[in-house]
C-alpha cells in the first residue's frame, strides 16, 4: 500500500517564541514515536515567532499524525509540509578533515568540486565549509569520509518555498 511507504518529509512549524516550546515539540516527537532526522530552529521576520524545520521519516499516515499532533500544541501557529513544494532547501556543514601534505591537495580539490570552501588550515587538518542542498552536503560528507573526518557539525536542513514566477506576458 502506498500509504505504508516510508518517505522523508520536510515540515516547517511556525511557533510562538515562548519558554519551553522546543521542549514541547521535542517531547511530542519522542512520546509519539516520530523520528526526527534533523531539526533547526531560529527566529523569523516576525518578532515573537520562531521557525522550526524538521526532517522526519515516516508513512503518509505518520505525517498526518505529526501534522495534527503538532497543530494541537497551543504554541504552534502553523504547520506546513513542504516536501512536495518547489522550495529552496539548504544545509550548512563544517568538516574538520585530517589533511597532511600528501593528501591536502586532494581534499581541497574535492571541496572545490562540491563548491565548498576551505575556512581553516593547520599543518595536519583542514576545515571545509559547505552550504548546499542537503543531498549535496551528504555527497561531500561521503567523499570526505575516505579521508579521516576528525569532527563534523551540520545545521540540519532549512527550507523556504519558492515564490511563484510570472511567465513572460502574464
Amino acid at each position: 500500500m502506498a500509504d505504508q511507504t516510508m518517505e522523508k518529509h520536510t515540515i516547517i512549524a511556525w511557533v510562538e517564541d515562548k519558554p519551553g516550546v522546543l521542549y514541547r515539540i521535542a517531547g511530542l516527537f519522542s512520546r509519539r514515536n516520530f523520528n526526527i532526522e534533523s531539526l533547526s530552529v531560529a527566529q523569523t521576520e516576525e518578532p515573537g515567532v520562531s521557525r522550526m524545520t524538521f526532517v522526519t521519516i515516516g508513512t503518509a499516515r505518520d505525517m498526518r499524525q505529526v501534522h495534527t499532533q503538532l497543530n494541537k500544541q497551543i504554541n504552534v501557529l502553523r504547520i506546513e509540509d513542504v516536501t512536495d513544494n518547489p522550495s529552496i532547501d539548504r544545509e550548512l556543514a563544517l568538516l574538520k578533515v585530517k589533511a597532511v601534505s600528501e593528501n591536502r591537495h586532494e581534499v581541497v580539490q574535492l571541496a572545490e568540486l562540491h563548491k565548498a570552501s576551505v575556512v581553516d588550515v593547520t599543518i595536519d587538518s583542514l576545515v571545509v565549509q559547505i552550504v548546499a542542498r542537503p543531498d549535496l552536503v551528504q555527497s561531500l560528507v561521503d567523499n570526505l569520509s575516505h579521508f579521516e573526518i576528525i569532527e563534523m557539525v551540520r545545521t540540519g536542513s532549512v527550507s523556504m518555498n519558492r515564490s511563484y514566477r510570472r511567465k513572460a506576458g502574464e
Partner: peptide, 11 residues
C-alpha cells in the same frame, strides 16, 4: 472534534 484522533488508531 480533534483532527489528531481521526486516523490515529484506525484507517
Amino acid at each position: 472534534l480533534d483532527p489528531s484522533e481521526v486516523g490515529k488508531n484506525l484507517i
